[in-house]
């Protein structure tokens, strides 16, 4: 057997594809955060349109993995990486979906009278974004410690989410007319909280890719 040069190149391309997909998603989160602050409907439409591109990236990475498995019968760390990527891209794709979901509510909010948004959003989005970018770094460098740190950070997002809900219910009691808007904000908080959960799912694969350690 000779060194499988072509195969190794294909594995490198797979890494690059995952990086490209995550940077596309980071952009979407960036836009979502901006649209949410300024209740910008046209930016929201742009986010929703962009989701198709990310869906397509997910499908093509999946297909690439399937082809590699069939052609190359990967084993050991190669196999662990490919099997994990097939799961990881599904979580990444869900993160992008939630950006679109939030964009949909931003459009709705932009047509209603403006109310004070919960103050926790900025921090929630900031932490969630850091979780996503760190989990991708940890994936590329196989940094298990960083992955564990991402998992731990989810706690803060959860706390902020609960605080946001408390704040929203106070607003609703104070200004019952704003219930429509605040219902949207409740859902938006939930989506941000879920986005962090998906980043955690991705991070949990990293120890397995790095060492084969698989927790049931």
């Amino acid at each position: 057997m000779s060194t499988r040069i072509q195969y190794i190149k294909e594995l490198e391309k797979l890494n690059q594809d995952v990086l490209d997909m995550s940077s596309e998603i980071s952009n979407a989160i960036e836009m979502m955060s901006e649209a949410l602050q300024s209740l910008d409907a046209s930016l929201s439409v742009k986010i929703m349109d962009g989701d198709d591109v990310i869906d397509h990236m997910e499908r093509s990475i999946e297909k690439y993995c399937i082809d590699l498995v069939i052609k190359e019968a990967p084993v050991a760390s190669d196999w662990r990486k490919i099997a994990s990527i097939m799961r990881i891209v599904a979580d990444l794709e869900r993160i992008a979906d939630h950006c679109s979901d939030i964009a949909g509510y931003v459009i709705k909010l932009s047509k209603e009278s403006k109310v004070e948004p919960p103050i926790q959003f900025n921090d929630m989005i900031k932490i969630m974004k850091s979780m996503l970018s760190d989990t991708i770094n940890a994936f590329i460098t196989l940094d298990t410690a960083l992955a564990v740190d991402v998992v731990d950070r989810d706690e803060f997002v959860d706390q902020l989410f609960n605080a946001a809900l408390d704040e929203i219910s106070l607003y609703i009691k104070a200004v019952p007319d704003s219930i429509e808007q605040y219902t949207s904000y409740i859902l938006i908080s939930k989506y941000i909280e879920r986005m962090a959960d998906h980043a955690v799912n991705v991070a949990k694969w990293i120890p397995y890719i790095a060492s084969g350690e698989y927790k049931l």
Binding site: S2, T3, R4, I8, V75, A76, D78, R80
Partner: peptide, 19 residues
């Protein structure tokens, strides 16, 4: 051995990094 080899040389051999 094929999912989680403990030796680097085994890993390299079975994944086609040398041979």
């Amino acid at each position: 051995l094929f999912s989680q080899p403990s030796d680097k040389k085994t890993e390299e051999y079975i994944t086609g990094r040398f041979g």
